[in-house]
Structure formats: C-alpha cells, structure tokens
C-alpha cells in the first residue's frame, strides 16, 4: 500500500439536519484520510467513529447489494459504498441525502412514499389459480427468464427517484424503479397480473408522467433500464387503449 496516500486528506461537506436542534439544514466540513481503497461510505464511517458520533446515515452490506447507502455526492445520486474518494480528489465532496425525498435526519431520507408506490404496482407473481402441489413447479425456460431478468436486478436504492426530474416536480408520479419492477413481473411467464397492473400504471400518475428523460437508467448501479421499461409499457398501454376504444367488447372479462 502506498504510504503517501494515507497522509493526504480530503474534505467532506456533509449535510446535517437534526430536527430537535435546528429548523434549517446546515453543512459540516470533516477532513478524512484520502486512502486509495476508501469509498465515501468508509469516510462517513470514519467520521462517525473518530470525529462526530452523532452523524446519522443508512448503510448495511457495503458491497452494492442492499441498496441502503444511496446519497448525493456533488449533486449526483450514487451508492456511497461504490464511489471511491480518489475519484473526487482533491475534493471537497458535498454529501447530501437523496434528492426529491423528505429528510428525516442528516443523510437519512423518509422512504414511505416509495414503499407505498412499490406496493401499489403489486410486485409479486399473480396467478389466476394456484396449481395443486402434486403438479410440481412452475417451470420456466432460460429464454423466458431472460425476458425479465434485467428488471429483477433492482435493489430499491431509489437513486433513480433522485435523478428523475419528473418525480422532483410531480411527487404523485409512480416513478422509475416501481415501474421497472412492474415490468419485471409483467414479463414473467408465470405471472398473470398484467391487466391488474395495467389498470394502475395506465393512469396519469403512472407511465404517462414520464417524458423519457432517461436519467434513471443513467444512474442505476445495477444497470436496470427503467426508462426502457416505461417506454415498453407505453407501447403496451397504447395498444390496450386503442383496442378498448375500437373494440370495446374485446376486453370484458
């Protein structure tokens, strides 16, 4: 390990908001060692352990799987466990809570809105009737798996919501991750919930708020393509709409 690296430092300007102390958020500047193997999350852990134990933030796995350490670094939504300090050298790095969400404390956002929306799109496999156990598993070919696999990689980190300018202006918009997850189940050969989800997603708060800015797909750490999912969904919803207008007898169940 390069010793010169451990002696250099970098400044972090960290967003602070302690509702019992202050009505407006402030920024605290902390100086941390600039180690070449450190990510922003390491720097935050260093601050909490060595400088200010009151700093609050979410994290868990430290390996880009759990999706809990998403924050804004210099205005970009990122996973702090996957963003090396050296890429921001010489700094400073401005660390803020994810944009477009209400802040509960310091770097912690309230994710109630996202959880409610996620639930609304029915992110589970819907079957008309459960098969009896003796009929065995619901089999799927590798090709059928490939249809939806990309959209199943979402880790609910909500970076896409922070990047989405539409969600910033229209909080009622269901938003990228939830729409991509809806498509993950729609494209699953075992699922029969397409029509139920279409009824929810074809509203004004669903896919039709999206203007295909595409930032959601840019920032996604798992290379999910929510923007692509929404466009696919627009085509499906448009076909369904024209069918229901031109052949109103066709869709009755």
């Amino acid at each position: 390990m390069n010793h010169a690296n451990t002696t250099t430092t970098i400044d972090l300007e960290v967003y602070r908001y302690r509702p019992e102390l202050e009505t407006e958020p402030t920024f605290d500047t902390f100086t941390v060692p600039l180690r070449s193997d450190w990510v922003i999350l390491d720097a935050l852990n260093y601050i909490k352990d060595e400088i200010d134990g009151t700093l609050s933030y979410r994290w868990s796995c430290q390996m880009g799987v759990c999706g809990s350490c998403g924050m804004m670094a210099n205005g970009e939504p990122i996973l702090t466990c996957a963003s090396f300090l050296k890429n921001y050298a010489p700094g400073p790095i401005r660390v803020e809570p994810l944009a477009n969400f209400p802040v509960a404390r310091d770097l912690i956002i309230s994710m109630d809105d996202f959880m409610e929306k996620l639930n609304r799109i029915k992110p589970w496999i819907i079957v008309e009737e459960e098969k009896p156990l003796e009929e065995g598993e619901y089999l799927q070919t590798p090709e059928q798996l490939d249809e939806y696999k990309q959209f199943s990689m979402c880790i609910n980190c909500m970076l896409c919501y922070s990047a989405c300018p539409i969600y910033g202006m229209e909080p009622s918009f269901i938003g990228p991750a939830a729409l991509a997850l809806a498509q993950r189940y729609n494209l699953d050969s075992r699922d029969h919930g397409n029509q139920q989800r279409l009824d929810i997603l074809s509203t004004d708060d669903g896919i039709w708020q999206c203007t295909f800015v595409g930032e959601c797909s840019e920032v996604c750490p798992e290379n999910v393509d929510p923007a692509g999912a929404i466009q696919q969904y627009k085509v499906a919803s448009t076909n369904d709409w024209w069918k229901s207008k031109l052949m109103p007898w066709g869709n009755k169940k």
Binding site: Q195, Q196, D199, I200, S202, T203, D204, G206, W208, K234, S237, T238, D240, W241, W242, S244, K253
Partner: peptide, 12 residues
Amino acid sequence: TSLKTVKRSNEP
C-alpha cells in the same frame, strides 16, 4: 379488478 375505480389516462 379495479377497472371501475381507476381512471385510465387518455394520453395514449
């Protein structure tokens, strides 16, 4: 089925 309660957009 929530067809009756949900207003489908005419955006299509």
